[in-house]
Amino acid sequence: MMGASLNGVLAQATFRPEFIWDNRHIFLDGVWLTIRIALVAFALATVLGLAVALLRMSKSWIVKPIMAAYVNVFRAIPLLVFVLFVYYGVAIHFGFSTTAIQAGVLALTLQYSAWLGEIFRSGIQAVADGQRQAAMSVGMSRPQTFFRVVTPQATRIVTPPTGNMFIGMIKDSSLVYIIGVPELLRVSNLLANRTFRYFEVYLGTVIVYLILTTAVYFLFKYFEQRFQLVDVLTSKVRSPFARARSRQLQRLQEAVSENRGADSSLGRLGSPSPNTG
C-alpha cells in the first residue's frame, strides 16, 4: 500500500503525456456516454422547450402562470443540487426503479427545457407582426402562417443561442458524475484517484471537452452560414442545389418572356402603355 502511493507521488515528478494516449479507451468510454447523455437530454429538452414556449404564449389564465412557474423554478435551482435531488431525493427515496443515467438525463432535460423554452418563445415573438398579417391577408390559415412564415424566421433567430445551450449541455452533463454515472468526468476521477496522475488525467479530460465543444461550435456556425441569403440567380457561391435552382429560374424567365402578350388581360403594370398619356 505504502509502496504504491509512494510510487504514485514519485511518478508525478515527471510529466508523461503518453499516459493520456495509453488510457484512451477509458476516456473514449467516458466521452461516448457524455455524448449520448448530452444528445438525448438536448433532444428531449428541445421538444419539451417547444411545448413550454407555445404554452407560455397561451392566453389561458390557468396555463400561463403554471408555465411561468415551471420556467422560473427550473432555472432557479443549481444544476448540481437538482441532479442530487432528482436521484437521491426523489428516485431513491421513493423507490422508483430509475437508474442514475435516467435520473441525470431527466434533471438535465427539465432544466434545459426551461432555458430553451424562453429562447424559443423570444424567437417566435421576435418575428414581426406584419409577417402574420401579410400571410393571413393572402388567405393562409393560422397553422400555415405559423409553419410556413413564422417558424422558418424564428429558427434563424434562435439558432445562435440554441448552439450556446448545446455547448452548455455538453459541459453541464459532467455534473451527473456526482450520482455515479460513468461519463467522462467520472471515469477521469476514478483514473486519477487510482494512478495519482492528476495532471495528465485532467489535461486529457480538458482536451476531450474542448474537442467536443469546438465541434459543436463549428456545426452551428455551419447552420448559420446556411441561413445566409444570396440572390439565387446572380450569386457566385454555388452548391449543386443552388446551380439547379438557378437553372430552373432561368427557364422560368425564358418561359415568361416568350409568352409575354399572349394573354392581353395580363398587361404589364407601371410601364407606359397605349392607355397612359
Binding site: D231, V232, A255, V256, N259, R268
Partner: peptide, 24 residues
Amino acid sequence: AELRAATYLDRVGLLDKLGAYPTQ
C-alpha cells in the same frame, strides 16, 4: 405556381429579380 408567380413578377417589371431575397 412558380410560372404564374413569375408572370406576375414580370407584370410589375421584376422578372430579373425572381431569385432575389427581399433584403436585396
